[in-house]
Design a protein around this nucleic acid. Structure first.
Length: 496
RNA sequence: GGCCCCUUCGUCUAGCGGCCUAGGAUGCCACCCUUUCAAGGUGGAGACACGGGUUCGAGUCCCGUAGGGGCUACCA
């Protein structure tokens, strides 16, 4: 596939284990994954837990679950292993310390003894770190260290000149070195910062293409300088656009619950998509189509098809408002196109979670009635839960459901009671036969189809909105259908 | 504030100088179909942020302005 690079393509997703996975992070990972798969390369998961304070136990499991659900397979990482591990940064501390020390020895980094208070003062007087320890002598530094003073290691950023970075979707980006600070490479607790750790790891893990969110663009020149100070050949870089809130204002946040225009809360965390009843294929399709497009004006495509076409260069550099409304549509497309057994298998746990005991054969008969009616898997409960409830416990719905528009209680009773013998006489209780016979019946008694069919629907399903009436009655069977109609008649009589 | 990135219908996008009287999708509206709800069909409204250049010709290239986003931590 790749005909211009001899080195194998290796991309990585390197999240901090700070809790549930945010859809924005997953999208960044997705682009790196698609790129690796397109080129037949490897996709690596690395956990960046160098900030102990922010680490949340169980995060790794959540990340792995999200990837598995979406079908994004990981070639190397914690749990799966690989030749370049460990894949958790807190287990690689020695490596970072070695290289930080090397930089100090070669004079491109230095020990800085400024205290938190010193830094706070500098910030208060309106500026960043003033580089006060950048040029102290080695003896001075040794003396301070011998006194037990804590220190960090900072990078000696060039004070003048420019650094030019090449971004695969933006081209050259030029920065003034004087704008950059002497970033901390190694913290006083011996842990590296992101700046050092990711470079050491990307180098040692032979990452060929760094894909990360645009918020890293401002520190791009710093990273370039560090790569060069280390004397390592750089990978290629791509800064990916991010997801904005649905209204286009601000980066999509997992902290603040977002609401779509219709007032529905917007799924942002990976597990929320599962809980909301979305299909993983639909979510993948949805995510892939933001900031990248399939071409040919196609909106619905498989992950495999996307892999065949995906190019990082084609990614739109602009951030996007989170187009969540499109996911409902896409999801409904996938539900419509799903095979009956497949959809039944996915619907079953949803119904069970709602408290229904699901009979597989019954479910398979019901599914075809549902396919054009469900936006999400969860919709099955309101639309067709009644099929799976205890039939013996069925009760007639309230009168306002039973009595159709432009009808009253007496009219409803007339229509329903007259329908019973007609249904009883049928040789064939199939929906089509029912339909034609009931249409004729409606004409006979002078009511509209909608009034007759609607009355039956309400009597038999207990709902105003349901799958088609006659298909439903066919599944329920003649005996049960008529029993329910009788229950409705009784209810109308009692309430009259 | 400084620095960096971005800017086509409400939204996601196609467009990489003439194929654009700007295409698709979603959402919205109307009509058709119709036993509810959907689905489906047909049609409609809807965008090149603005101003300068460059060019025979600019949505497409350059500059500026405006707007949006991000960074500016011993967080990533």
């Amino acid at each position: 596939m790749s005909n211009r690079s001899e080195i194998p393509v290796r991309t990585r997703y390197a999240p901090s284990p700070t809790g549930p996975q945010h859809i924005g992070g997953i999208r960044s990972a997705l682009f790196g994954w698609l790129f690796a798969r397109h080129h037949g390369g490897q996709f690596i998961l690395r956990i960046e837990d160098t900030d102990q304070k922010r680490s949340v136990p169980g995060s790794l499991e959540r990340i792995l679950e999200s990837f598995e659900w979406l079908g994004m397979d990981i070639d190397e990482g914690p749990q799966v292993g690989g030749d370049y591990g460990p894949y958790i940064q807190s287990e690689r501390l020695e490596l970072y310390q070695t290289w930080a020390k090397r930089l100090v020895e070669q004079g491109t980094a230095y020990k800085c003894f400024a205290t938190t208070e010193d830094l706070a003062e500098m910030r208060a007087s309106g500026g960043g770190y003033d580089r006060r320890y950048r040029d102290i002598s080695a003896e001075q530094a040794d003396r301070l260290e011998a006194q037990g003073k804590p220190y960090v290691i900072r990078f000696k950023m060039p004070l003048s000149g420019q650094t030019t970075g090449v971004d695969m979707i933006r081209g050259e980006v030029v920065f003034e070195n004087a704008q950059l600070q002497d970033a901390v490479l190694l913290k006083s607790d011996g842990f590296p910062t992101y700046h050092l750790a990711h470079i050491v790891d990307d180098y040692h893990m032979k990452i060929s293409h760094v894909t990360r969110a645009v918020e890293w663009l401002p520190s791009f020149p710093l990273h370039i300088q560090i790569w060069e100070a280390l004397g390592w050949e750089k990978p290629q870089f791509t800064h990916l656009p991010v997801l904005l809130n649905p209204n286009g204002k601000g980066k999509l946040s997992k902290r603040k619950q977002q609401f779509a225009a219709d007032g529905k809360s917007v799924p942002v965390l990976a597990h929320e998509f599962i809980a909301a009843g979305y299909l993983p294929e639909a979510v993948m399709n949805f995510l892939t189509n933001i900031g990248w497009n399939f071409g040919d004006n196609r909106e619905v495509f498989t992950t495999q098809e996307a892999i065949e076409r995906f190019q990082l260069e084609d990614v739109n550099p602009a951030n996007s408002a989170y187009p969540i409304a499109k996911l409902d549509w896409l999801n409904s497309q996938y539900i419509q196109d799903a095979a009956v057994d497949d959809l039944a298998r996915r619907l079953k746990p949803v119904l069970e979670a709602a408290g229904y005991a699901v009979d597989d054969d019954l479910l398979r008969r019901v599914v075809p009635l549902l396919q054009v009616r469900l936006k999400t898997l969860n919709d099955v409960v309101a639309m067709a839960g009644f099929f799976f409830a205890d039939w013996q416990a069925f009760e007639a719905p309230p009168s306002e459901v039973l009595i159709q528009r432009k009808m009253d209680s007496a009219a409803a009773a007339t229509v329903l009671s007259g329908a019973i013998p007609v249904l009883q006489r049928l040789d064939d209780f199939g929906s089509e036969t029912q339909h034609s016979v009931m249409a004729a019946y409606a004409k006979d008694i002078g009511y509209k189809n909608g009034q007759v069919f609607g009355s039956l629907r309400a009597a038999v399903t207990g709902q105003r909105v349901s799958p088609p009436t006659f298909e439903t009655m066919e599944i329920l069977g003649r005996t049960e259908s008529i029993r329910r109609i009788e229950l409705a008649l009784q209810a109308l009589k009692e309430r009259a």
